[in-house]
Design a protein around this nucleic acid. Structure first.
Length: 227
DNA sequence: ATGAAGATTGCCT
DNA sequence: GGCAATCTTCATG
């Protein structure tokens, strides 16, 4: 079941905890990989010093200023991609939710192949444990920037989870997972942000092994040049 | 034009 | 726990 655009047309702080347990699916020529979200972070946009949208609209963050239900993908540290879901706060607020981690629910072999660097076999919990790892497992890059996740024809789409309220009471088809019991959601400071670090806008499933480890922001030392 | 910092990760000691 | 990798974006001169 596809998630509606109205779902995303709320402040990101409301959307973020609601995204836990939802499934992001990406279909490419190689196949489908899906991830059930276990950790997210809300960014408020223009009013949030930690948001990429804080200083206004640029070429990079333009999608965040557009309609909700689209993917904002950015490139960082010269090698990593991270994906957000655009939400709606106040008009033009450019709020979004960063997808930080999840559990692979489909296409595990393909996800592992994309994530594998060395000979070591990655454990399932490590396939999408962290925002850049999640993108790598799903093969998300800047070409998915602006993708609409609310239409069935999109290669990148957001689905409701098995056992979510919309499906309770329906007869499960053979092979479907049974509904799961509700899970406790914890909240705390966002990972690696230098400003507004005290605001608890990170949400995750208590005790879930796929949730990334918390790290406070640490400024990197300037490159040292010795003549 | 130039430089510093970054919503991170993996490998090293 | 420390640090390098790697490059885009943004701010400043």
């Amino acid at each position: 079941m596809l998630i509606s655009r109205e779902f995303f047309a709320r402040p990101s702080v409301e959307v973020a905890p609601d995204l836990l347990g939802r499934v992001l699916e990406h279909e490419t020529a190689d196949g489908v990989v899906a991830v059930e979200l276990t950790e997210v972070e809300a960014y408020a946009g223009r009013s949030d010093p930690a948001s990429h949208a804080y200083r206004g609209k640029t070429q990079r963050n333009a999608v965040m200023f557009g309609p909700p239900g689209h993917a904002y993908v950015y490139f960082t540290y010269g090698m990593h991609f991270c994906v957000n879901m655009v939400c709606l706060g106040e008009e033009g607020s450019a709020s979004a939710v960063l997808l930080r981690a999840g559990a692979i629910t489909a296409g595990e072999d393909l996800a592992r192949a994309r994530r594998t660097r060395s000979e070591n076999r990655l454990a399932p919990r490590d396939l999408a444990r962290g925002p850049a790892r999640l993108c790598q497992a799903l093969a998300i890059d800047r070409s998915q920037d602006g993708a609409d996740v609310c239409v069935a024809s999109s290669p990148l789409r957001m689905l409701g989870a098995a056992g979510n309220p919309a499906r309770s009471g329906t007869v499960l088809a053979r092979g479907d997972d049974p509904p799961r019991p509700p899970r406790r959601i914890l909240t705390g400071p966002r990972v690696g942000v230098s400003s507004a670090a005290e605001i608890p806008w990170r949400f995750w499933y208590d005790g879930d092994p796929t949730v990334s480890v918390y790290r406070p922001h640490v400024p990197r030392r300037p490159k040292l040049v010795t003549p």
